[in-house]
Write a protein that binds this DNA or RNA. Structure first.
Length: 790
DNA sequence: TATACTTCTATTTTT
DNA sequence: TAGAAGTATA
């Protein structure tokens, strides 16, 4: 497996003279990559990053510089040069999506030899794999369950109540985030600094953490944090086990290193101490998950942690045109804590980044949609357009507008399939069937659908379960033999217990998806939703069907449950030409021809809360987020801000984001204002245009000054509603005209014409919003400004 | 058990 | 403001 003729992938004819070559040997050869064609097309830095195989390597890969390509090529290279076999390489990512993508690309690179790299996966999936092998060393059984967020919260609630703490004052959520934080930092209960452990519930934080961990062990369960934390514990307490893994992983590769938290860092460092061949790829300028424990420091400190490390910078960007890159680079240069990279492109300068102001968020949404429609008219595919917002609350107005216009869109990263209530319920039934001691799952569906079993019954079960030291289901079974339960409750409990016994017997005798189907029917769960007449019941039934269907892809129920607990993903159907709408966080790793970035206002972006909670570091992370947003765009980036926005139901006047002024003026075009400020429903068309042709000019300054002294509606003046209308300012007039729904020029029954939907009849009037029955397009809500009397 | 009313809260979110 | 979650009431 050592020598590879450097024939650069040319197909080798079978040499007729080479008689001894056995068929098997030829078949083996076909598995081997031929030459190193995979290195072709890499630029110098990329090639260096691939070929620096030994010792610690840090690859600083800016946005769009071919990071994944380097990572996958590096693996291919290791295998092709026989430095490592697929199972010698540990390769970690953060998301399942990234892991999948990488597997796929390696397969394409080196063919079947690369398939089934057993140690390519997320931190959590690999942690799970290791933990299952040595579970008993950390007090678990190898079939431990992995808890989702909701199970975690339910468990913490119990722990809090057990310790006689007022669950109202000290909500489970707060405890969860404290414990999560500790776990992210690799701290076991006894390692939490005393000062911090005392922070929760009058000094009980540490005790609660201890109690929570103990409960997890008795339930034979682990939460997400444990999947890494318990590996650390395992290795610290069992050096022989650690050494085994250190030897096993000859090469370690880490994707998105800037997102690692302390626990992950420690995890990697322990493993890397074997061969010291650790390559981390990341971009400090794209670290946007500090709030959930990621430590930019990990990447900033790499050279210190791994002395003699090779550092390779990938700065040649293959994604964006010149002005976009210049804008992104200029902005991120304002950050102080960074390793420093300068992105270059050989692409054309292209279009400048545009900045547009709007009167309020509604108008901003309108402008944005119009811009999308005009791109659409020029044959720009909608699937190449994205709208990236800072907070999900911004999505509503934009969606409303899209719906009004009939513009197809999809929200990326919404509620996840496996987190929906009906799916979790179904899952709970399966979990109890599979594992009768899964108390959390049992509790979840104990009275769902309603079987007349309430809190009182549950308390009795709990008490009995505890005193007898048996799981809830077992306790329930035993209790039906006694007369501790009232007759009605007893029959309910008995029916449930018997059902579970019956279902458990079915497992293995029938295909598991069929078992699931039966369980959902016999338990009355499906029926519950069929009877439900609320609007989303049909969707939920549909989800349940999809759920059962998706089980068929797995060999057995256990495999399915493992998949689900680790891979919380919605099955997404692709294909349709739609605009993508998502948060900036969700956009990391994606790219689009045209990107809209609304809501660039101080307070929203940079977000006030980030500023308050993390100060300078918070501001820098927000700036990185802005940088991520801009670098998603290949050809067009369109920023906008609104001068008025409703925050928590109150109108506030806002100031353009400080980030706008940090952009290099030469790469930015300010969109002239008149179009925006007079467009649509404004009744104040006479307003002087507050924005000049170029920001930084007096006109721009004036605009900022004007918005600044408008006063803040959200604070003092607005607190008293009576004051609201008394101000002399036009902004208030405008706002009130909108918020109170001033009389429209249209009335019900009127015949009207819409530029897009054609003729129709007004069905309802609500301020400037009309519901119109269009002759062709059906009933739609539209703004009166798009309507003429016909 | 269903419904109406009150209270609370309000970034970003993967595994 | 608006949605969820919890509480009161019939």
């Amino acid at each position: 497996m050592n020598q590879h003729p450097d024939t650069a992938g040319a197909s080798r004819p079978v040499p007729a003279s080479d008689a001894p070559t056995s068929i098997a040997a030829r078949a083996m050869a076909s598995l081997r990559p031929q030459g190193s064609p995979y290195l072709e097309g890499l630029n110098d830095e990329q090639r260096r990053a691939v070929e620096a195989t030994d010792g610690p390597v840090l690859v600083l890969a800016g946005a769009g510089t071919g990071k994944t390509r380097v990572l996958t090529t590096r693996m291919a290279h290791l295998i092709a040069t026989a430095k490592a076999r697929p199972f010698d390489i540990l390769s970690v990512t953060f998301t399942n999506k990234a892991a999948r993508e990488m597997k796929h690309r390696i397969g394409a690179l080196i063919g079947p030899a690369g398939e089934g790299m057993p140690w390519l996966g997320t931190f959590h999936s690999i942690g799970t794999k290791i933990l299952r092998r040595h579970a008993e060393l950390v007090g678990l059984r190898s079939d431990f369950t992995i808890l989702g967020m909701d199970d975690q919260l339910r468990l913490m609630k119990q722990v809090i109540v057990d310790q006689n703490i007022d669950e109202k004052r000290w909500p489970a959520r707060a405890l969860a985030s404290a414990i999560d934080g500790w776990k992210n930092r690799g701290l076991l209960p006894e390692q939490v600094p005393p000062g911090e452990a005392g922070a929760f519930a009058f000094g009980k934080g540490g005790a609660l953490y201890t109690a929570y961990q103990a409960r997890l062990l008795t339930l034979n369960a682990a939460d997400f944090g444990d999947l890494l934390l318990l590996c650390l514990k395992l290795w610290r307490e069992n050096p022989d086990v650690l050494e085994n893994y250190q030897q096993r992983f000859r090469y370690i590769l880490v994707d998105e290193y800037q997102d690692t938290n302390v626990a992950q860092y420690l995890w990697l460092r322990l493993l890397a101490q074997g061969h010291r061949n650790v390559a981390c790829v990341g971009d400090d300028d794209q670290s946007i998950y500090g709030w959930r424990g990621a430590e930019v420091d990990n990447i900033l400190r790499f050279e210190h942690d791994f002395p003699g490390a090779t550092v390779v910078r990938l700065e040649r960007n293959y994604r964006s045109t010149g002005h976009i890159l210049a804008a992104a680079s200029g902005l991120i240069a304002k950050n102080e804590g960074r390793l420093g990279k300068t992105l270059r492109t050989e692409d054309v300068p292209g279009e400048k980044v545009t900045v547009a102001g709007a009167w309020d968020s509604e108008e901003e949404a309108r402008q944005l949609s119009e811009a999308i429609e005009s791109l659409q008219a020029k044959q720009h595919p909608l699937s190449e357009i994205a709208v990236l917002v800072r907070i999900s609350a911004q999505m509503r107005e934009i969606e409303d507008r899209f719906v009004q216009l009939g513009l197809p869109y999809r929200v990326v990263g919404g509620p996840r399939f496996y987190e929906r209530a009906e799916i979790r319920d179904a899952l709970a039934y399966l979990r109890v069937t599979q594992n009768p001691s899964d108390d959390l799952a049992f509790e979840r569906i104990f009275n769902t659908p309603k079987r007349g079993l309430g809190d009182a019954t549950l308390q009795i079960l709990h008490g009995y379960s505890r005193s007898q030291g048996v799981p809830l289901l077992q306790a329930a079974r035993l209790l039906t033999e006694t007369d501790e339960l009232k007759p009605r409750a007893r029959s309910g409990v008995r029916a449930l217990v018997e059902s579970f016994s019956r279902w458990a017997r079915m497992v293995g005798t029938k295909p598991h998806s069929e078992v699931a189907q039966t369980i959902l029917e016999e338990s009355g769960y499906t029926e519950m939703w069929q009877k439900d007449k609320s609007a989303d019941a049909a969707g939920r039934l549909e989800n349940l069907k999809e759920f059962v269907r998706s089980m068929e892809e797995f060999p057995d129920m256990a495999a399915f449950l493992e998949h689900v607990s680790l891979v919380m993903e919605a099955s997404e159907q692709e294909g349709a030409d739609r605009v993508s709408l998502m948060t900036l966080h969700a956009a990391k790793g994606l790219e689009f021809d045209t990107v809209f970035l609304p809501g660039w206002e101080d307070g929203l972006f940079p977000n006030q809360r980030a500023l308050d909670e993390s100060g300078r570091a918070g501001l820098e992370e927000e700036r990185r987020l802005a940088h991520v947003g801009l670098t998603r765009a290949r050809k067009r980036a369109k920023l906008s801000f609104a001068v008025n926005r409703r925050i928590h139901g109150l109108w506030s006047s806002t100031v353009p984001s400080r980030f706008i002024d940090e952009l290099p003026p030469g790469s930015v075009d300010v969109i002239d204002a008149p179009a925006h400020f007079s467009a649509g429903a404004s009744r104040f068309d006479r307003n002087p245009t507050p924005f000049g042709s170029s920001y930084g000019t007096p006109g721009w300054q004036r605009a900022q000054a004007a918005t600044a002294n408008t006063g803040n509606f959200g604070s003092t003046p607005a607190r008293n509603p009576a004051n609201r209308g008394s101000g002399p300012r036009q902004i208030e007039g405008e706002l009130i005209a909108k918020s109170t729904g001033a009389p429209s020029a249209f009335s019900v029954g009127m015949r009207v014409f819409h530029t897009k939907f054609g003729p129709g009849d007004v069905a309802a009037v609500d301020g400037n919003k009309l519901t119109v029955d269009f002759d062709k397009a059906g009933q739609k809500m539209v703004l009166d400004s798009f309507i003429q009397a016909a």
